Simulated scan of single mutants.
Amino acid sequence: TLKQARERAKALLASVLDGQDPAQNRRLESEENTFSELCDSYLERHAKVHKRTWQDDERRINKRLRPRWGTQRVTAIYQTDVSLLHHEIGKQYPYEANRTVELLKSIYAKAMAWGYLPRLHDNPTAGITLFKEEKRDRWLTGDEMPRVAEAIAAEANVYVQAAIWLYLFTGVRKSELLNAQWADVDLDRGELRLPDTKSGRTHYVSLSLPAIELLSRVPRIAGNPYVLPGHKAAQHLVNIDKPWQRIRNRAACDDVRLHDLRRTVGSWLAQSGNSLHLIGRILNHQQSSTTEVYARFGQNHLREALDRHGQQILDTAGKSDFNDLLPQISRSK
Rank of each mutant, 00 (worst) to 15 (best):
L177P: 10
R45C: 14
F169K: 01
K91E: 12
H121W: 05
T1G: 15
S15D: 09
L28D: 10
I279D: 02
G318D: 00
T53M: 12
L178Y: 12
R173G: 00
L166E: 04
Q20D: 10
Q328T: 12
Y108D: 06
H309I: 14
L120T: 09
R59C: 03
A251R: 05
I152P: 01
Q312C: 08
H277A: 06
A14W: 03
Q299M: 13
A109F: 07
N179T: 10
Q311P: 00
A11E: 15
K91P: 09
Q4S: 15
D122G: 02
A109T: 14
Q235H: 08
K10T: 10
A113F: 05
E88K: 14
L17M: 08
N157T: 10
D81C: 05
S320P: 00
D254N: 09
A9V: 12
G190F: 06
R220S: 00
D122L: 10
G280I: 12
D241T: 15
D122H: 11
V148C: 04
Y42M: 04
S206Q: 11
E304Y: 02
D137C: 07
L140D: 02
R189S: 08
I77M: 04
N123G: 06
S272T: 10
A317H: 07
I240A: 00
Q235C: 05
Q24Y: 12
L140R: 04
D21M: 03
Q271S: 07
S267G: 10
Q299G: 00
Y167A: 11
Q72H: 11
T100L: 07
H301V: 14
W54C: 00
Q311R: 15
S41F: 07
D143K: 10
A154N: 04
G19Q: 05
L120E: 13
C39R: 08
D255R: 13
P327Q: 08
D255W: 06
K132G: 07
P219T: 10
N300A: 02
N239I: 11
Q72E: 09
A234I: 02
I128L: 03
W54S: 03
I164Y: 08
L214Y: 04
L228G: 01
L258C: 07
E191Q: 14
Q4D: 15
H86F: 13
W268N: 09
E88F: 11
R68I: 14
A305I: 15
Q24P: 03
L13G: 01
D321C: 01
D184A: 11
A153Y: 00
L237T: 07
Y226V: 03
V101P: 01
E150H: 11
D184T: 11
P229V: 12
Q311S: 13
R66F: 01
W182L: 03
T1Q: 12
S267F: 10
A113K: 15
S288I: 15
H46Y: 14
A151Q: 07
D186V: 06
R250D: 04
H121M: 07
T34I: 14
E29L: 14
S199C: 05
G19F: 01
V218S: 02
N98R: 13
R6M: 05
L209Q: 12
R189Y: 00
Y226P: 04
L17F: 06
V101I: 13
V218T: 01
L314P: 00
L17G: 12
V101Y: 01
I240M: 08
S41A: 11
S275P: 01
L258N: 03
E150N: 07
D137F: 09
L177Q: 05
Q181D: 03
Y159Q: 04
A76C: 02
D137K: 13
L17W: 06
Q311G: 00
